[in-house]
Structure formats: structure tokens, C-alpha cells
Design a protein around this nucleic acid. Structure first.
Lengths: 226, 226
DNA sequence: CGCAAATCTGCAGAGTCTGCAAAAAAGAGT
DNA sequence: ACTCTTTTTTGCAGACTCTGCAGATTTGCG
């Protein structure tokens, strides 16, 4: 039951490795098929056949057909939360989160071919895009919890009781900060998708967070000024 | 296509009134049934029978069964955009949007019984909640367009060509402002849902936007907070 | 090798959703 | 009042999604 010596190894038993491989195969098959033929024209049967499993097995991994298109960033959330906790203590909450996000984005760059296909699929399917937006927004609660932990106690102490109904134990500020930053990353990503040739993503990302940190004032050269 | 003398009347022809009535009946039937028996146990057949139409007609109004649970604020978006355009010209973009939101929230208070049931349904169905988050986030594109219009040209002129692919014509700032504000309203709403007895929604709403306007600095007493 | 647990698979069946064409209703003209 | 056109509703056939169940297969372990 206990972990014997699996601290540095990235995988657990052989079983878990196979599960991860199957899941990854299903996701990759789905994304590639959808990028070519359009997400709406891909059936579960086609995906599972490409991945080499039965249609029934598909539903052992995903609750619905659409889930396979929006569950790519599953591991990102956990990494992000750890990075927030490990950020230098002298940073403000916003700065710490910005720092953690920048590190995570570098990670994503590794798999950028699949991410690019994924973005293409979402762009051509408004229904799936909406679903994806919702999933990312749902991440923010966990992130808000982590921010509250960082703000409340720097050490690993104070696991407050009452783990159920996490919303009620959270202050407004951590929830707002997490939600706004998740949103800001999404906007930066969408903006960059349209202008990939003109600017680097890091550039757009930094400008976005500069707006946030400044309190969202009207940009200099606009008609309606305060 | 042109409006002849329907400026003050809230409805168009008799046909449109009946359509709106049918749609509202379907939404209300769905929400009430779901609030009682749980959203997952309600079939399209049950909803349409309660609303007095055929199951096939249901799908003439909603693309999927779940849509009926997340399409309540459909008219809110249009009203909000109009309010943004009509806001006093001397307000900054953020102030104008804050003003418009406050007005719209008063409107929602009218139907608060249905909204309360709706919130209950979403709270007990994570799947639908995620879907709802996505739909609200999708509203932001239209709002961003309106903000850009307000910032770019105060008058009713300049309906720029190229209506398709609206993202590419938008600057980063309007998109970010719209997305962040929509998110902020959602966070304020969720926070208030948990503490309805302690504070008014307007109160939470104002605090939320104060945080935003200040650039999300860490609140004063961060270290030791019970 | 043999046992126990987890996983994969096929199958039956309920529910979702779409295209099509006919019936019913609403609006407009004569 | 009557007809004609357009819109909306409806039933039906059929494809697809998703679930529960039971048996076959694979993995982990002694």
C-alpha cells in the first residue's frame, strides 16, 4: 500500500503506466482525427479503433465523448499549485501566481504540436470551446485554495478542518485572484492564437498581467478617456 | 426588417411572443423538475410534456438537453451591452462596465425565485455548472466588441466591415477587460451564494470591483487571519 | 504456477439528437 | 371570409452516446 522507493521515478506500477498510455493514446487519436475531419464528425468508435481499444473502454476513461477533447491540461493544475507554494515568500500573491504561470507555460511549449492541433480543434467547434472554458474555470477553486494556504500560513501547517464545501472557507480575495488570473491566461492564449506570427506568447502574457496589476486603466491612445 | 413603431412595446409580432413563451415554459419546467428530482434524472420527454409540447419541439429550441439548464441569462447579455454604450461618456471603460453591471443585477432581482432554483440545480450538478461557466465566459466576446466600439467611436457610426472572425479585429485590452469583469461577477455571485445572510450582493459586488480597480494588491492583514 | 484484483470487452437497453415530410398555426393579401 | 405563403409543430426512422452487467483477459504477487 505504501510507496517503497518511487519518489523520483515519474511512474508507479506497470499497471498505471499502461493506463496513462491508453489515456494518452485516446486523447492523441481524438485530437488528430478531429483536426483532420472536424470534431463533430468523429465517433467514439473511430477514436477507440485508432487507439486500439474497444468503444466500451473509451467510456471507462472519459465520462462523455466530448471530455476527450477538453481534458488535456489535467496535470497542469497540480504543477501550478505546487509552483505557487514554492514561490519566493517575498512576492505578492499576484506576483507569485504570475511567476508560477510563466514556469508552467514553458512546460507546455514542449508538447506544442499537440497543443496547436488542440487549439485548432477548439477554434472550429464552438461547442467544445465553451466546454473547455468551463473546465478551466472550474480549476480556479483548487488554485484559490492554494493561494489562501500561501497567504495564511507559509509553513506546511494548519490543515483546517471541514474539507467539504471548500467555497465557504475561502475569502473573497483568493477566489477572485485565482479566477481572474485563470481568465487572463485564457485571454492571452486566445489573443496569441490569432497572432502567432506577430508576437511571442510570453510577450502577450506579460502585457496582460501588466494590465491587471495596474488596475485595468484605459490604454493611453483611446477616444473615451477618464 | 425595419422597426415601424415598436420602440416602447416589449414584444414584436404575436408569433415571437409565442416562441418566447414556449422557450420560457421549457426553461421553467426544466428548472423546477430538476430542482425537485435532480437534473440527471430528468428526460427531455418529461420536460416537454410538462411544458405542453412534443419532445421533437424541445430540440427546435435547444441544441442539447443540457442547454435548457444554462441558457437562462440569454437576454442579459444584450441588455448589458446596450447599457455599456449608453453609459456616461466621462466614465472609464472599467467604470462604465461596472455601472452597467450594477443596473443589470437589479433587473435579475425581479425573477429571483427562478434564479435561486437555478443556482440550486447547478450546485448539485458539477457537470452542468462547468457548462454554465463556459457559456458565461463565451459571452465575453460580444461584450468585448461593445467595449471596443465604445472606446473607439462614441457615436453610432463606423460599422466596420468584416463581421466574421471577430476575434482578430479586437485589441487585447477590450477582450481582457470584458473577460475579467465577467469572471469577477461570477466570483462575486458564488461568494454571495454561500453567505446570503451576512452581506448583500451589491456589497460583495462593490468590494470585488474595488479589488480589480486597485490592481489586486494583497489585502492588508494577510498573515494571521482566522 | 496459481490466486486475487484490476482491466477490457461484448451486449442489451435507455436516452439523446438529427433529417425529413406532413399536419397545424399565423400572417398577409384579395 | 377565403386562400396562399411562411413558420412552427409533430411523428417517425435511424444513428450515436452512454450505462449496467457478466464473462474473458491481463497484471501483481506469493
Amino acid at each position: 500500500m505504501q510507496n517503497v522507493a518511487e519518489e523520483s521515478a515519474p511512474q508507479g506500477g506497470l499497471r498505471e503506466r499502461k493506463k496513462r498510455a491508453t489515456r494518452a493514446a485516446l486523447v492523441e487519436a481524438a485530437v488528430r482525427l478531429a483536426a483532420e475531419h472536424g470534431a463533430e464528425n468523429i465517433t467514439v468508435e473511430a477514436i477507440s479503433e485508432t487507439a486500439g481499444v474497444s468503444p466500451r473502454t473509451f467510456f471507462n476513461y472519459f465520462d462523455s465523448r466530448d471530455d476527450v477533447f477538453v481534458m488535456i491540461g489535467a496535470e497542469t493544475s497540480a504543477r501550478l499549485r505546487r509552483a505557487v507554494l514554492e514561490a519566493p515568500a517575498e512576492l505578492s500573491p499576484l506576483q507569485a501566481l504570475r511567476h508560477a504561470l510563466a514556469a508552467e507555460l514553458a512546460e507546455v511549449e514542449q508538447h506544442h504540436e499537440l497543443w496547436r492541433l488542440h487549439a485548432e480543434v477548439l477554434r472550429r467547434s464552438p461547442r467544445l470551446l465553451v466546454r473547455s472554458l468551463g473546465v478551466h474555470a472550474a480549476d480556479e477553486l483548487g488554485l484559490a485554495e492554494t493561494l489562501a494556504e500561501r497567504m495564511g500560513a507559509d509553513g506546511p501547517a494548519a490543515p483546517s478542518a471541514g474539507e467539504e464545501s471548500r467555497r465557504s472557507a475561502l475569502g473573497l480575495y483568493p477566489h477572485l485572484l485565482a479566477a481572474v488570473c485563470v481568465t487572463a491566461v485564457r485571454v492571452a492564449f486566445e489573443h496569441w492564437c490569432v497572432r502567432q506570427e506577430e508576437r511571442t506568447f510570453t510577450d502577450v502574457f506579460q502585457e496582460t498581467f501588466d494590465h491587471l496589476a495596474a488596475g485595468l486603466p484605459a490604454p493611453s491612445g483611446t477616444a473615451g478617456r477618464p
